[in-house]
Every structure is written in structure tokens, then in C-alpha cells.
Design a protein around this nucleic acid. Structure first.
Lengths: 265, 265
DNA sequence: CACGCTTGTTCAATCCACTGAACAACCACC
DNA sequence: GGTGGTTGTTCAGTGGATTGAACAAGCGTG
């Protein structure tokens, strides 16, 4: 569609990084992941990333040999090995396994759509999804990303950060992404919500990303020191959403969060 | 903690590949994925891959900057971006989306555990899993791999290949992996099964990978020319497995395979 | 505390991967 | 068919990434 005329530099910024070939290879993977069709030619990549064709060719050959990408005629696309590696990452998160078990036997949550997510730069990334009633099927998938300000999990994880980090990510004049009329518009609004979230211990997203849909989220206490902070959320239809139901969900979410935070559940 | 004393060379074989840094970076990712704990130090990697420490350090810095790996003190582990990339790969497979939809409304399959897989080297890799009754929870996850000879999908996909390819992968004196007393032992057995599978159009795995568990699998016709061939499988407990039920499952699996093979379902 | 054995980081010299231009093949449009 | 725009591949020169040795810092052990 809209031609992505953004010759982003292959390397981050000034980026006098060692092993530039690796940085560029990563940029190739990114470009392929973001390409609408998922398929790009050598010239496409060379142009978009600003890498000479001959170098690009070398990169692609190496990436193909590693099965990180696949060649199909003249088009390159992401390779299967990435699924393996992503799965390897997830399998190391014990939280994901326990997450599923808990959802299944939770009185209220077992019928809902629950997700576990984590901060990834200035977005959140969904790591796992439990679907109680297939009636409300979410379009979002494992691995998908969402801006922090547009999701309940995003806001609740943001509230976990230190104020100066928040300030750095959202200076007063930032322009927030908008998806519905109810999306937060200003950094001020966002910070007000963060304050409220810190008090009440959970976050609510009220049709801010999708009309007709609401979300509740709680943070998972970071056990010990290591590991990035996780968040949990339930998604429901606004039409069938009641105060008492919300209270129940938050209660169970907090239980789940607690048991995930304390390995010896 | 059996020390993995296998200093596999960072590069494939003779591997006079261009962009060696990329090849080595991929080797680092592999090593991290295969490490039992998922965490390795710089020295571990340097030793295991046979890359000088200083070079390894450079690689790791570049990989970390690309968020393909994460540093945690002195330990390195796989990074979140791999989940993104893996998800991006899967989201491009329209088959996966349709797979879920079909399973939900299929009379018999909707209650079973169904998976879609693809050949990946000499293994199969599971791409998606539908779980009808959480009673029988599989240990295998999306992205997991299985030897071809040990799974119904593996055998059915093998049967799709040309004989000379099969011969190349399974010469008469290969030693097949064994997981249960019923696992196939010889290439001859495997080839006999392949012949049978080609006749009947589906594959059966009878406690060959896990005692008490059986699997049925059918191939997805490769639509057009592009794309590697996919396979579908149902998993059931041997105890509750009947002939008539099997017939129903195979029938529905074939319907699903057909609709996946012909985009315009 | 000194010792041996780790660990990761620094730095200058060398070697090799990167580059740019020239190449060949292809397609689409007059 | 000619022609201008592609595409991806080839190759020799050169600049920078790679490297090994030397360094500093941590950790048990006797």
C-alpha cells in the first residue's frame, strides 16, 4: 500500500557498532517482518536499508544458509528457524506454562480471554493468550505489539516504571497514537491515569483501542530482581461488562499475578 | 548438567560463507536456544562455538543492540524480538488462521487436539495447535520439533517427497531415533510405511513417540508451486480410540487439508 | 594473603569482508 | 526490435572488522 518511503538507516543512529554485519542482518529481518506482503527482493532491501546491493546479497546468502530467511525465486521472506527461536524463548518463561494452567481452573477467568504481556521498548508484546469462549475472538496474536498508551497492560506496566523513565518516554509534547475517539491524547492524560493505576492497583482500558471492547490489567510483581516485568489482562465486550464482574476478574487476575510472581505457588 | 562438550564449529562445514559474522551470530542464537538453561556466558559461547572471546564479545554486543538477545549480568539469553519475528512469520501463513476457524466448527475435530506442521530440515516443526478438550494436554508447543520418523505428520510429509530424496535422508544403515519400544527402528520399516501411507492417503503413529498416545495425519496439498508442504494431525489417547472415530477424523482432516490447499475455500 | 584459574575488556596489526563500478539478463513499454 | 529501466551477479582494491595477546577484575582454595 502506501509506499514505505523511509530509507531508515540500517544501523540505529550514529551506531559505530562492532560487527556491523550483524546489525544490518537484524535490520533485514526487521524489514521483512514489517513488509506488508512479507516478501522483499534484494533490490528492495538494498534500497530501503541503504545497503549496497552487493553487500545485501552477501547478507542474504548468509541469512539463508542459517535458515533465518527463505528465498523463493527472487523474493526473500522470514525463515522457519525464527519460529523455533521464538518458541525457545517462550518455553523458558515458566510463567507462560503456569498461566495456562491457572486460567483453566479459575472460576471467572476460565470463560474469558486472558493474555500475558511484557514491555518491549515503547510497546508491549503479547506472549500468550488463553481463550475461554471462542465467541469473542481477538484479532491479536502471540508476538503482536501494541503502543503502551493504548492498552490496559501497557498502562499498568508503565505505572511500574520510575517517573523519570516515564517522563523520558512521554515528554509533555509527545503525540500519542490514536485508534478510537476515546484514545488518550496527551501525555498529561496518560500520567494522570498512571497515578490512578498506582493507587488502585489495576488498569482499565475503556474502548481506547477498539470500540465496544474493554480491558482490565494488573502487573505481575517482578520476583527477585531479574526478568522484565510482566502484565496480565482480560478482554471483554463493553456490552456485557458489569461492575461486579470486573471486580471478580481483577481479583482473580491478582491471584494469578501473585502466583506467577512467587515461583513456589 | 552433562557438560555439552561439543565444540561444533560456528560455521556449517567448510563454510566459506560471505558475511561470516552473520553466520556466527546465527550460531550464537542456536547455542542459546539449545542450552538447557537458556543462559550462557560470553566464555561459554566462545568456547563452545570456537570463536575468539574478543570476537564473541563484539557479536554479543551487536546482537544485544538488535534486541535479538538479552544480557542479564554476565548471562546472555534469547531476546524478545525473536518472538516478534517468529510471530511475523506465522502471521503470514494464511493457513494458520483458517486452520483455527475450521477446527472450531468441525463436528469431530472440534473436540480433539489438532496440529499443523511443516518440514524443517530432517524434522517437523509445529506451527499451530488447536486444543478441543484441555483434558489431554500435549507437552509439545508451537515451534517444537520432532524427528520425521517418530510422528504421524513426519511420516506423511516424508511420503510426499520423491524417493531419491527419502533415500538421501534415510540410507539403509541410518540409525533412527527411538523413544518407545514401538518406535520404528530401520530405514526399511520406515520406507514400507511410506509406501502404505501413499496408498491410503494418511499416516498413523501408534505409540511410536509416546506410549498410550496415537496420532493420525494427512498432507495438505501444496497449492500452486510455492511454499513448503504442510501436514495436519490429530492426537488421541489409545485407550479411547476406535476405528470408526478414526475414520471420522481422517475424513475431517482431509476436508481441512483440502480447504487449506485451495485458498478459495 | 598469595595463588591459580577463572572471567570480560582493551588495543594495534593484519587480513578479509565490504564496496562500487562494470556486467549480463530481464521486462515493459513505445 | 530497439531502448531505458530494471534486476542480480562478478571482481579487484581497500578500509575496517577481526584477532590474539596482554590486561584487569573476580573467586574459591589451601
Amino acid at each position: 500500500m502506501a509506499d514505505s518511503r523511509t530509507p531508515r538507516s540500517a544501523d540505529g543512529l550514529g551506531s559505530s557498532s562492532p560487527a556491523p554485519a550483524v546489525t544490518r542482518a537484524a535490520a533485514v529481518l526487521d524489514a521483512l517482518a514489517e513488509a506488508p506482503s512479507g516478501r522483499l527482493t534484494l533490490s528492495d532491501l538494498s534500497r530501503e536499508l541503504g545497503i549496497p546491493k552487493s553487500s545485501t546479497s552477501n547478507l542474504l546468502m548468509a541469512l539463508e544458509e542459517a535458515r533465518l530467511i527463505t528465498r523463493e525465486g527472487a523474493d526473500f521472506s522470514l525463515g522457519r528457524k525464527l519460529v523455533e527461536l521464538g518458541a525457545a524463548y517462550l518455553s523458558r518463561l515458566d510463567e507462560v506454562q503456569e498461566f495456562y494452567k491457572f486460567c483453566e481452573q479459575a472460576p471467572t477467568l476460565s470463560g474469558e480471554t486472558v493474555r500475558i504481556a511484557m514491555i518491549d521498548g515503547d510497546h508491549i508484546i503479547y506472549l500468550a493468550r488463553y481463550e475461554g469462549h471462542p465467541a469473542v475472538r481477538l484479532t491479536s496474536n502471540i508476538g503482536d505489539k501494541m503502543p503502551l498508551s493504548l492498552s490496559a497492560v501497557g498502562k499498568v506496566l508503565l505505572a511500574q516504571l520510575h517517573d523519570h523513565d516515564i517522563e523520558a518516554m512521554f515528554p509533555d509534547d509527545v503525540e500519542l497514537p490514536v485508534m478510537t475517539p476515546k484514545s488518550l491524547r496527551s501525555a498529561a492524560e496518560l500520567k494522570a491515569q498512571v497515578a490512578a493505576i498506582r493507587k488502585q492497583g489495576y488498569a482499565l482500558e475503556d474502548e481506547e483501542s477498539t470500540l465496544g471492547v474493554v480491558c482490565l490489567a494488573v502487573p505481575v510483581p517482578t520476583h527477585g530482581a531479574h526478568g522484565p516485568s510482566l502484565g496480565l489482562s482480560v478482554t471483554a465486550l463493553k456490552a456485557t461488562f458489569s461492575e461486579e464482574q470486573a471486580a471478580l476478574m481483577v481479583k482473580e487476575l491478582k491471584e494469578l499475578a501473585h502466583s506467577l510472581g512467587n515461583p513456589m505457588g
